[in-house]
């Protein structure tokens, strides 16, 4: 049963000061899967991740992480999980080697020296091992953090917005590394704001206002909403958005620079409205993208929760 999953949690709830930030969240992550966790800021991603690795005790709910009970066996989970915090949380007044060495000692690794040397070599930081961590750039800090949380060979990685503030090249390298790790059987739960990253995940979950709104592969999530999308192109798109929004069947317009994506559930109505309102513009049906769906989900959830911000 639950041992088939790296993470298998149901009905997680958590409140802070009387405000429910996570509502009945259920998640299942398979071994070797990269599971993307998406949602706007303050939607409960970090809180959910912290509950799964035992940093927070859920108010209610149950489940297992690597086969251990998330409430009763948090200590056992911590041994086999690598958790990368949203904010860089290694010691800037220690050298790179000292940081890795500390982590290796904390996890009681027998082959500490070799593990640290190997990690430094993999990072390409052997030459700078004795440099203070505080002097590293953002991208290097992120690579060090990943190396540090992989040091004790965890079976599950929980990464909380690992690529925030990292340049595109470093992000690409980072994701290639994640896929290499997943191929060796490590499960990864990664939260992100970037759509290109979402598309690189095997599975996705979308959370807003503490509630899980969608769950599945990218295709499944897109299909589940049953949205149809048209692209509107042309010069002076600026005033058009308002006009389109007023039309029946146009449930959402999103500006994408050179084009406006107009989406709606009723395909025929949407097409008719667009032909009327956007005459003189170039219009064509396109495939609904993840981003269109996520924006749709977020706006809808605002309606459902009375626009609570």
């Amino acid at each position: 049963m639950s041992s088939d999953f790296a993470i298998d949690v149901r009905g997680l709830n958590k409140s802070f000061h009387g405000r429910r930030v996570v509502k009945d969240v259920a998640l299942q992550v398979r071994p070797g899967e990269i599971f993307g966790f998406l949602g706007p800021n303050g939607s409960g991603k970090t809180t959910s991740i912290r509950m799964m690795c035992g940093l927070l005790t859920p108010d209610s709910g149950e489940g297992t992480c690597l086969g251990y009970d998330i409430v009763k066996e948090a200590a056992l989970i911590k041994r086999q999980v690598g958790y990368m915090t949203q904010k860089f949380s290694y010691w800037e007044d220690l050298t790179i080697r000292e940081n890795l060495d500390f982590i290796a000692r904390v996890y009681g690794m027998n082959d500490r020296r070799e593990a640290v040397d190997r990690a430094l070599e993999d990072l390409g930081l052997s030459a700078r091992a004795n440099q203070l961590t505080g002097s590293l750039s953002g991208g290097w800090k992120q690579r060090l953090a990943l190396a540090a949380c992989l040091l004790h060979r965890p079976k599950l990685l929980l990464l909380d917005e690992p690529t925030a503030g990292v340049d595109p090249t470093a992000r690409r390298d980072f994701w290639e590394e994640l896929h290499r790790l997943a191929a060796t059987g490590i499960s990864v739960l990664v939260s992100t704001h970037y759509m290109d990253e979402a598309e690189r995940c095997h599975k996705l979950a979308y959370i807003a206002y503490g509630k899980l709104l969608a769950n599945g592969t990218a295709e499944e999530i897109v299909a589940a909403q049953g949205l149809h999308t048209w692209a509107v192109r042309g010069a002076n798109l600026g005033g058009l958005t308002e006009a389109l929004r007023a039309k029946p069947g146009v449930e959402q317009t999103v500006a994408f620079g050179s084009a406006i994506h107009a989406s709606g559930k009723d395909e025929a109505l949407l097409e008719r409205s667009l032909r009327e309102a956007a005459s003189g513009f170039q219009i064509e049906p396109i495939e609904t993208g993840l981003e269109d769906v996520f924006i749709y989900l977020m706006n809808r959830s605002e309606d459902n929760f009375g626009g609570a911000a």
């Binding site: 911590k78 958790y83 860089f88 949380s89 290694y90």
Partner: peptide, 13 residues
């Protein structure tokens, strides 16, 4: 203050 506490708490310490 530096956020390293969260890291410590996530380890078996």
């Amino acid at each position: 203050e530096r956020g390293t506490m969260e890291n410590l708490l996530a380890t078996p310490v």
